[in-house]
């Protein structure tokens, strides 16, 4: 089991994490954060393997990974 926590406010909606997630379980939220970006969010958390690709790619250091 693994999971990621995405800091909604630190995210700038660049979408790079969504491209590298091997399980395609990171998408862009429909909601806005305070800077009016659509932040990334994880769906189907049970599919997460904790590979941390998303966290490695994030230019804002906005993702923490737990395993």
């Amino acid at each position: 089991m693994a999971k990621v926590i995405i800091d909604r406010e630190r995210c700038k909606g660049c979408e790079l994490c969504t491209l590298v997630c091997p399980h395609k379980i990171i998408v862009m939220s429909k909601l806005f954060n305070q800077k009016s970006y659509h932040p990334a969010e994880q769906i189907d958390p049970e599919k997460c393997t904790g590979c941390a690709f998303c966290a490695m790619t994030c230019p804002e250091v906005a993702i923490e990974v737990y395993k």
Binding site: A2, R10, K12, G13, C14, E15, L16, Y37, G50, A52, A55, M56, P59, E60, V61, I63, E64, V65, Y66, K67
Partner: peptide, 18 residues
């Protein structure tokens, strides 16, 4: 297993998205 490195401050980056 993955977090912000200690030698980075908490200040959010000022760089453009991406």
């Amino acid at each position: 297993v993955f977090e912000k490195p200690k030698s980075l401050t908490d200040v959010p980056f000022t760089y453009c998205p991406g």
